[in-house]
Simulated assay, not measured.
Amino acid sequence: MGYLRRKIINGLTRLVAVLLPAQQQYYRWLIRLNPRSADSHYHLGKLLAEQKNWQGAIDCYQQAINRNHPALLHPFVRL
């Protein structure tokens, strides 16, 4: 069971490594299409925070706040 579990975790890690850059490119593309989209800035910020790119996440969250994204206007949101 340990060997199989390690193989599955290794495969999932590789999959995530491929998908995260694709997601980031997708949100950046959406922002280029519609720079006023609070949702795109918010989701890119979440993705960057998951990658521990704190400054990039803060910049995206600030853009989402400037565009009145409801999730970031809540007083208990974690930034």
Rank of each mutant, 00 (worst) to 15 (best):
G2I: 09
M1D: 10
N10L: 08
G11Q: 04
Q62D: 10
I9H: 03
G45E: 03
Y27R: 07
N53S: 14
L47E: 02
L15Q: 05
H41F: 08
L72W: 06
M1F: 10
I65F: 12
F76E: 13
P70C: 10
G45H: 03
H41W: 15
E50C: 00
A64Y: 04
R32P: 02
V18W: 01
L79G: 03
Q63M: 11
Y42A: 02
S40M: 06
L73I: 04
M1Q: 03
R6C: 09
Y42V: 00
A64M: 04
Q25T: 14
A57R: 03
Q62S: 15
R14I: 00
I65Q: 15
I31P: 04
V77G: 00
A57F: 05
G2Y: 04
A57V: 02
L72V: 07
Q63W: 02
Y61A: 05
Q25Y: 11
L44Q: 04
P75S: 11
L4C: 10
A22T: 14
L44S: 06
A71Y: 07
L33C: 07
R36S: 13
Q23C: 09
L12R: 03
K52A: 08
Y42D: 00
Y26K: 08
Y27H: 09
P21K: 07
A17K: 08
Y42L: 07
I65D: 09
W29E: 15
H41L: 10
H41A: 12
L12P: 02
N10M: 06
L30I: 08
G45M: 03
R5Q: 14
I58V: 11
V16F: 01
K52M: 08
H69A: 06
Q51M: 15
A38P: 03
N34E: 14
R5M: 14
H43E: 15
R6P: 00
W54D: 15
R28P: 02
Q63D: 15
L44W: 02
R32G: 10
A22L: 12
D59S: 15
N34P: 05
R6T: 11
Q25V: 10
I65Y: 12
I8P: 01
L19Q: 10
V16K: 01
I9L: 12
Y42P: 04
K52R: 13
V77C: 09
L19C: 05
A38N: 05
I9P: 00
S37F: 00
A38V: 07
N53I: 00
R14Q: 06
Q23N: 03
R32V: 12
F76I: 02
L19W: 02
R36H: 15
H69D: 01
A22H: 13
P75M: 06
L12G: 02
R78S: 12
F76T: 11
A71S: 09
I9Q: 07
A38M: 04
R14W: 00
R67C: 05
G11R: 04
A38C: 06
A64P: 03
Y61C: 05
P70R: 11
N66W: 03
